[in-house]
């Protein structure tokens, strides 16, 4: 007598597909966000009556080591104004916000030329600060 082999079915559980897709989506969202300036080390200064800012295209950071970054990329002081102008392009007034994130112990010899460059590029300057509690 011939013994029939039992056919085993090996299906991928379709229930998990949604979860996998969702996790992949989040993974890529996080990867995309990793290209911002979150890797730069700086401690904000404190201020009062602050407003929240959203949808800005340009952020400039002076780090703890007094290094200058434009949108997360290290840049020299001399190129800053031209590069900001490139990013801002022909944006209308009100949409030309430039976030300035300066380490609280940075000195005037570093932040004043940056403020001047932002002003030269026609950016609307917003100092990123921490609220005093």
């Amino acid at each position: 007598m011939k013994i029939r082999r039992k056919i085993m079915k090996a299906d991928v559980p379709s229930v998990a597909m949604g979860d996998i897709a969702f996790n992949l989506l989040i993974f890529f969202v996080i990867l995309a966000r990793a290209s911002d300036d979150s890797h730069v080390k700086w401690q904000p200064a404190q201020g009062t009556r602050l407003e929240s800012t959203r949808g800005t295209k340009v952020s400039v950071i002076i780090s703890r080591e007094n290094k200058l970054y434009l949108n997360g990329r290290e840049i020299g002081q001399m190129q800053l104004a031209a590069e900001i102008e490139k990013y801002l392009g022909d944006l209308p007034a009100g949409e030309r916000t430039v976030l300035l994130k300066v380490h609280n112990e940075a000195t005037a010899m570093f932040y004043e030329p940056v403020i001047e460059s932002i002003s030269q590029a026609g950016g609307d300057l917003v100092h990123v600060l921490d609220e005093i509690h």
């Binding site: 998990a16 979860d19 969702f22 996790n23 989040i26 969202v29 996080i30 966000r33 979150s38 201020g47 009556r49 602050l50 407003e51 929240s52 800012t53 959203r54 976030l99 300035l100 994130k101 403020i115 001047e116 932002i118 002003s119 030269q120 026609g122 609307d124 300057l125 917003v126 100092h127 990123v128 600060l129 921490d130 609220e131």
Partner: peptide
């Protein structure tokens, strides 16, 4: 799975808080 997804969701939400700052109008140099 649900717990993991919830953790990731709140992590992403927390990391996308807007910056707070102070606008300063400087005359063009």
């Amino acid at each position: 799975d649900i717990a993991f997804n919830l953790i990731v969701f709140f992590l992403v939400c927390a990391s996308s808080q807007p910056d707070t700052g102070r606008r300063q109008d400087l005359p063009a140099s």
